[in-house]
Design a protein around this nucleic acid. Sequence first.
DNA 1: ATTTTTTAGATTGTCGACAATTAATGTCGT
DNA 2: ACGACATTAATTGTCGACAATCTAAAAAAT
Lengths: 228, 228
Amino acid sequence: MTHTFLNEAPITTASDQVFVDMRREIVEGSIVQGSKISEPELAKRYGVSRATLREALNRLESCYLVERKANVGCRVVALTAERLIEVYQVRSSLEGLACRLAADNMEPEEVKGLKQLLNQHLQTQRVKEGESYYQEAGDLDFHYRIIQGSKNAHLIHLLCNELYQLIRMYRVQMGMVGPRVSKAFDEHLAIINAIENHDGELAEMLMKRHISASQANIQTKFDVYQSI
Amino acid sequence: MTHTFLNEAPITTASDQVFVDMRREIVEGSIVQGSKISEPELAKRYGVSRATLREALNRLESCYLVERKANVGCRVVALTAERLIEVYQVRSSLEGLACRLAADNMEPEEVKGLKQLLNQHLQTQRVKEGESYYQEAGDLDFHYRIIQGSKNAHLIHLLCNELYQLIRMYRVQMGMVGPRVSKAFDEHLAIINAIENHDGELAEMLMKRHISASQANIQTKFDVYQSI
DNA sequence: ATTTTTTAGATTGTCGACAATTAATGTCGT
DNA sequence: ACGACATTAATTGTCGACAATCTAAAAAAT
């Protein structure tokens, strides 16, 4: 079961379904990055008309997974090192903000839930030692809860609905499943403590640093290709 | 001539035109905030089919000017005090980032252009003394150039294409045309100096403060209504 | 042979009509 | 008179076809 954020509108219409399906295929690489999208072809493949497919494409564009040019067409986004830096600069700033707000606005029981989540991850990590399948869903859930804790609806939408699928796309296609687990664990713990102490300034700084470390980690994948 | 951001894709298709037209009407209040949008009605009014109108609606949703619910319809966004706070928290964070990046990445001639722009505004301000029609276009242009100076395409898109129309909508409909001119001038000057000295940290802080002051200024308009 | 122009093909943008869903009206029962 | 239910009207979602535009291959010119 692939983890997809929860606070989304339920899937009612056909274009909803196509949007969710295409999004998964793009994030996972089944529809390869940078490739051109043929509307008639994909419409046939998903068994819908071009109109509903275009509706889905519009929404994919809203979350930066495809790019569109008038009278030319649609391409899947290309995962470049430059774009990674740009996106992570934005992410770092916004999640830093979210974390600072969360230190003020999270309910005690929400903080408690966060700590339980972390303990849970510690245990599964010990079990799966090294293989650490947990990273993806676990890390995502951690960030997700803090973002929700900001109580800023606009910020939540920006991060959870618009930006995060692109970030997942980088992580999945760059093969970010393995390392950095124990380090990330310690960083998560420090962030939770700051939030619990209502130290927004510290929480923001720690989150920014945590995300920068994550970026540097992905960045190495690009550097590897570069050096070959 | 209303100032609209320059780095937009040229208007080629019919839905482009409808998008730009509707956007202006919403921002200026001709289409009133919170009102429901009837697709057949507006399609007839703009002389296009429902398909192209819906395309325009999708893009208006991308820049937060309308909200959409499946099988229910579309509403113009409502300008609440809560939303203002949320949006400005995000804006402050992102433009702070932009300003910090601009301190590193702006070319000397770009900085020079910024200073000229400010001098220009100083003169027109002296002439129009008090009435200060300059605020809207001038302030917008100042922020616009710094954002461009960040050289971060994703950030530029986020601020200039997605967020700024909503901000303009608040300013226009709350009647923010008059005051805060001289104060804003000094703040702008300090920001430019920080950028020129490549002091990103200071530039970020000053910009955040500048935007917070702007927020507080708009906020008073809501408080006035509240107290009546 | 190279460049420009023309032409053919394919793709996107737009339209009007139909199907599915929602909101509003009216009807019935208590 | 009030509330629950059924029916009707209106709105949105979806479809297939046509028009406008772009891309690329073929033809013409230098």
